[in-house]
Design a protein around this nucleic acid. Structure first.
Length: 786
DNA sequence: TAGCTGTAGGTTTTT
DNA sequence: CCTACAGCTA
């Protein structure tokens, strides 16, 4: 019909044009789901539905931003509410705060705030933690909240021994949060769900206002989220959910697969649309994914198919250890870039745990390959940033006890553990926030004269800061930093060899504040800023605008796609993770996670595992994941290492001519042979993953791929490499032992040793602070003339 | 009370 | 490997 539906497939158009009544979109990976959702919103607006009647809920800000951007292209400047579940609840709770005993300026505790509060609650509840841990108690309480279980209910029904302790802590913890005018992440959902349940008029008002609700990634909703969505779709059941049971990977966070599996039962007259055609991946990749996920029992059968042209075989590759895996991947990326058909942004490296990115980082850095780690929380976890944030939190919400405890002696001002303990006791006894207790320090007999004076000084400081609460964020921050003499404090407490500079981080934080000021010119933005910071997530750090290799967990990768993907460390105890192996439900979730990782890939995929994995500093033997046995190995290119030869690292270097022909030259290629044949390689040298002449060129469909050049000089080849890698063009021969070089990060240094040939030419360089080893062809170093 | 040092203990995924 | 914290000294 109109422009909005004209370039959609029949199934997609069907979903887009369904407006009234419940709609279930089962969308396989790469099936154009976001397209459907955004076009559907545009279609609704075109049909006369008012923008404020629509709310689209996602799980990450990243997904919401993407949606907003794409809707904006189809229907510009329409105030449709799009955002995360947590943000949605946070905003609603601001309005109805008083109904649940909070003030409108309540704070959102992050994970570490909650942990601190939890410890305090455990102490106050007087329970013994000898048979459990604060983490276990926190997990039990979190679980309860996700299932909408109140402290009262939990204490009645707690049967398991661990839960009994948690049930005792739970009410104390909640009371302390209430006193602190704060909520934790789970509370955002929990409080709002209860609010809707206990206040019929609020529920029906919101149901009436938000007539059209969309939920993305519905398979990841927990009971609280289910209840919220349900409550808002009673009188106007125009609820559209999209999801894929095979991509449910948040069971550990309380996500209930039944929400999507039973959607058709919950909502009569539901319209169900299945998007099964995949537009993202090659048939090879899709086959691997499909074979894997078929091993799950608890799923809805789905037929994944694609009309995409056939591509390269999926690589299943073994490495000697994690370091060789990292080097091998970095070399592979370099090779593919040099071959000219890829750039850094095309690659993603995915793993089960954040800790696994370390060695990869190192290998990429040594080659000067630009990368980004999707781990957005990292910045806000830094001590100096948390300190400043705590001040801001306390200014915004004087009852924020966790912030007070962090801030009262930072920078050190003589208020120690004992004083703090006395303040806390007084606060607990009077059920008042600790800042209030500090204000009344003169009434606390146990405090020494000196302590009273010091606390009084802090209160005066706080009052001075408070006056600035309504200034711009930038002014407030700068005033704060000056007032507490933060920079001198950082200077005197930062150890000499610290590799990252806290003062630079503070500057970056100010920049973030300035940026926020510009985006929010009108309102007093402190509260909004703090909310935004509290609700950022790891995945939000992903920047597709910069041209970098992306390192991320498979959880963070959900919803994204990349031309070339590496899934690393597919080993027993890692994927499936040790703690998920014994339980069939959890095991299936691990399999889904692997499925998510695989289906991120568009054209090229390598799955790898190592024989040894360094864990906790020590190398331990690693067993291949059971999932690897479920893949169609006879359709994949399987590459294994032959153990013995690995001890001859230096020896086989000489087997190869002093050029880079291992990348390009057919003669140096170990032909993979027909698909399915297992290659046995001597070690981690670079070879093409497939016989390139045998496969169609995916990247320049219309341009015939030139036959590989017979031999390329190092210099010429390196120049290409250097251009791609944006590093210098110095010939390798110019680097000698004793040469002085400059590195972008480490400064000037001297080459103390040189080994290897060609792309493996490696220099050990002594910098002022550290000694580093680089492959010359890739490193971001330049020769300093003497 | 500040600040250092050594050690014991724990290791997933994230809003 | 990394962090949290106990125990020490000034």
């Amino acid at each position: 019909m109109d422009a909005i539906t004209k370039d959609l497939t029949a199934a997609q158009a069907e979903a887009v044009q369904h407006i009234d009544g419940p709609l279930l979109i089962i969308a396989g990976p790469g099936s154009g789901k976001t397209r459907v959702v955004t076009h559907r919103i545009a279609h609704m607006l075109h049909s006369g539905i008012r923008p404020w009647q629509i709310a689209a809920l996602t799980f990450t800000n990243k997904a919401a931003d993407e949606m907003r951007m794409r809707v904006n292209l189809l229907a510009p400047n329409q105030p449709v509410w799009m955002g995360t579940f947590h943000r949605f609840c946070a905003q609603q709770l601001r309005r109805y705060a008083s109904m649940i005993g909070l003030s409108e300026n309540y704070s959102i505790y992050d994970t570490s705030d909650s942990k601190a509060a939890m410890k305090r609650a455990i102490a106050a509840a007087g329970v013994s933690t000898s048979h459990t841990s604060p983490e276990a108690i926190a997990a039990a309480i979190s679980n309860a909240k996700n299932r909408l279980i109140t402290p009262e209910i939990m204490s009645q029904q707690s049967s398991r021994a661990g839960d009994t302790i948690a049930a005792k802590v739970y009410p104390v913890y909640q009371q302390q949060l209430l006193t602190a005018n704060a909520v934790d992440f789970d509370d955002l959902l929990f409080h709002f769900a209860r609010l809707l349940r206990e206040n019929p008029e609020v529920r029906s008002n919101l149901d009436e206002k938000l007539k059209y609700i969309m939920v993305d990634e519905y398979q990841d909703t927990n009971l609280a989220q289910y209840a919220i969505v349900r409550a808002l779709s009673v009188d106007h059941p125009n609820l559209a959910v999209t999801g894929d049971p095979d991509q449910s990977v948040y069971g550990w966070r309380g996500a209930d697969l039944n929400n999507i599996l039973d959607f058709e039962k919950d909502y009569p007259n539901v319209k169900t649309v299945r998007l099964e055609q995949n537009y993202r991946s090659t048939p090879e990749i899709l086959r691997v994914a499909d074979q894997l996920i078929r091993h799950n029992r608890r799923r809805k059968q789905k037929n994944l198919f694609t009309d995409n042209p056939t591509g390269e075989a999926v690589v299943l590759r073994q490495f000697e250890d994690g370091y060789k895996e990292a080097d091998g991947i970095a070399d592979e990326i370099a090779s593919q870039m040099i071959a000219g058909n890829a750039e850094p942004r095309d690659f993603a490296i995915m793993c089960r745990m954040n800790a696994l990115t370390r060695s990869i980082e190192h290998s990429l850095r040594n080659r000067g390959i630009p990368y980004q780690i999707v781990n957005g929380l990292e910045f806000y976890q830094r001590k100096e940033i948390k300190d400043l944030l705590a001040y801001l939190h306390l200014i915004n919400n004087p009852a924020h006890d966790v912030a007070l405890q962090r801030v009262i002696n930072t920078p050190t001002r003589g208020i120690g553990a004992k004083t703090l303990e006395r303040l806390q006791n007084f606060a607990d006894a009077h059920r008042i926030p600790m800042l209030e207790a500090a204000r009344r320090a003169s009434e606390i007999d146990s405090l020494s004269k000196r302590a009273k004076t010091l606390v009084g000084t802090f209160i005066k400081l706080y009052d001075r800061l408070s006056i600035k609460a309504t200034a711009t964020l930038e002014d407030l921050l700068r005033y704060l930093i000056e007032e507490i003499q933060f920079v001198p404090y950082l200077e005197r407490t930062t150890p000499e060899q610290q590799d990252n500079n806290p003062i630079a981080n503070v500057d970056e934080f100010i920049s973030a504040a300035v940026e926020f000021d510009q985006m929010h010119p009108e309102d007093g933005s402190l509260e909004a800023f703090l909310e935004q910071v509290a609700l950022v997530s790891d995945t939000d750090a992903f920047e597709d605008s910069n041209n970098r290799v992306t390192l991320m967990t498979m959880h963070a990768a959900k919803g994204l796609e990349f031309p070339r993907v590496f899934v690393i460390a597919v080993e027993d105890n890692l994927l499936p993770h040790r703690r998920s192996k014994d339980d069939e439900t959890q095991l299936e979730e691990e399999r889904r996670l692997f499925f998510v990782g695989i289906t991120r890939a568009e054209k090229w995929l390598q799955i790898s595992y190592a024989k040894l994995r360094s864990f906790r500093g020590e190398n331990q033997p690693a067993i291949p994941s059971m999932f690897l046995g479920e893949l169609p190995r006879d359709e994949m290119q399987v590459i294994e290492v032959k153990g013995q030869r690995d001890f001859f690292d230096d020896a086989y270097d000489d087997e190869y001519p002093d050029s880079w022909d291992l990348v390009q030259e057919p003669a140096a290629v170990t032909d993979s042979g027909p698909a399915g044949q297992t290659d046995v390689l001597d070690g981690p040298r670079i070879i093409p993953m497939t016989d390139q002449s045998a496969i169609p060129d995916l990247y320049h469909d219309d341009v015939p791929q030139p036959k590989k050049k017979a031999k390329v000089s190092i210099q010429a080849e390196l120049k290409t490499a250097s251009d791609l890698l944006q590093s210098g063009t110095t010939p390798l021969g110019a680097y000698r032992e004793g040469s002085t070089v400059r590195h972008a990060e480490y400064g000037e240094g001297t080459i103390v040793a040189l080994t290897g040939k060609g792309p493996k030419r490696t220099a050990k360089i002594q910098f002022e602070e550290t000694e580093e080893t680089f492959r010359l062809a890739f490193a971001k170093i330049e020769l300093v003339e003497r």
